[in-house]
């Protein structure tokens, strides 16, 4: 049984101009010890998905339908108090800005000890020892001294480590990390990514890594879900999605990332912009920007179909449409990712 299962999740925002659907019928699962990357551009609904799972949707946002199961237990309909306990104990959260996740008025140690004592019955001395142990584990030098310092005395990267330590306090089964490296410098980013990966391996914690940065996903995730306009466009093993993108959107997204060593004068670009939630096109939401769109794309919404090792929501891969997988593969062949693969392994 997967650790986390999300089935047909729909997140809505009722506004006075009508209800906006931020997350529209997505299903995914995360296994124990697995890192699932969720990528997408702003407005794709990736953060909303994370927030729905930890029950921190900002009102008036709400889970309109679907189920969220953690180790077989429904989370989506739990009362606030119960959810709060699960959030502390079984699901940890790491957000983009470490400063807002820490209370500036209390020392780092106090915050760690408080969290530990809320969820376990350790004595204050034990809890403090555990706090120092956690700080050591996330790579903070001189933890015995640092434990009594305040958040402002830590640099950005160190703060994010403290936030990770807070999330790890009670050995959660799942960590939702929403853009954990976005606010950090590249060299610090790499340190945090390595830390997350190591923790995942050592503790068997599953991570849902929400980010816009394909590079971070490539390095960290085992599987990746690409989101577009509130839906999953493609989901599969990270190598498969990056090097052998199926969905035209994923494909365009990959092409638009500049990368060192590629001397193309122009980047591939997807015309237009992601639709606003108020006017998501009928059929496949990507159809107005898709170079391969045909009639069916403009009328019928595609569901995820298995293609090779991954799943993709695209009519190009639907046999009935008169296009075989092979044909569509040539359509999206000669990709930059393929070239990369050759360069690295050929």
């Amino acid at each position: 049984m997967p650790l986390l299962e999300v089935e047909n999740l729909v997140v809505e925002f009722p506004t006075r101009r009508g209800t906006l659907t931020a997350v529209n019928d997505i299903s995914l699962h995360i296994d124990e010890g697995e890192v699932l990357g969720v990528v997408g551009e702003s407005g794709a609904g990736k953060s909303m998905t994370g927030a729905a799972i930890i029950g921190l949707l900002e009102p008036p946002g709400r889970v309109a339908s679907g189920r969220i199961l953690l180790e077989g237990e429904r989370l989506d309909n739990l009362p606030y108090e119960k959810m709060r306990r699960i959030r502390g104990k079984r699901i940890g959260a790491i957000f983009q800005d470490p400063l807002t996740s820490l209370n500036p008025l209390y020392s780092v140690g106090y915050q760690l000890v408080e969290t530990i004592q809320t969820h376990t019955d350790m004595t204050p001395t034990q809890a403090r020892a555990r706090a120092i142990e956690l700080l050591t584990e996330v790579g903070i030098p001189a933890p015995e001294r640092r434990v009594d310092q305040y958040p402002h005395q830590f640099s950005g990267g160190m703060r994010q480590r403290v936030v990770i330590a807070l999330a790890l306090c009670v050995n959660p089964r799942l960590i939702i990390a929403d853009e954990p490296t976005t606010a950090l410098d590249v060299s610090i980013q790499a340190q945090i990514i390595a830390l997350l990966k190591r923790l995942c391996r050592d503790h068997g914690t599953a991570v849902m890594l929400v980010t816009h940065d394909m590079g971070v996903i490539a390095e960290t995730a085992d599987r990746v879900a690409v989101m577009y306009a509130g839906r999953i466009a493609e989901i599969g093993p990270v190598r498969e999605v990056i090097k052998n993108a199926k969905h035209p959107y994923t494909h365009g997204l990959m092409g638009s990332i500049p990368s060192i060593g590629h001397d193309n004068e122009r980047l591939e670009q997807i015309p237009g912009a992601m639709p606003r939630l108020t006017d998501i096109p009928v059929g496949c939401a990507f159809n107005p920007r898709c170079p391969h769109a045909f009639d069916k794309c403009r009328t019928v919404r595609p569901d995820l179909l298995p293609v090779e090792d991954s799943w993709t929501a695209c009519w190009l891969y639907d046999g009935e449409a008169g296009r075989t997988i092979e044909a569509s593969k040539t359509l999206v062949a000669a990709t930059k990712a393929d070239a990369l693969l050759e360069r690295n392994h050929g």
Partner: peptide, 9 residues
């Protein structure tokens, strides 16, 4: 330190 697409795994 740049995360790159080539670096999967």
């Amino acid at each position: 330190t740049i995360p790159d697409l080539d670096m999967t795994g």
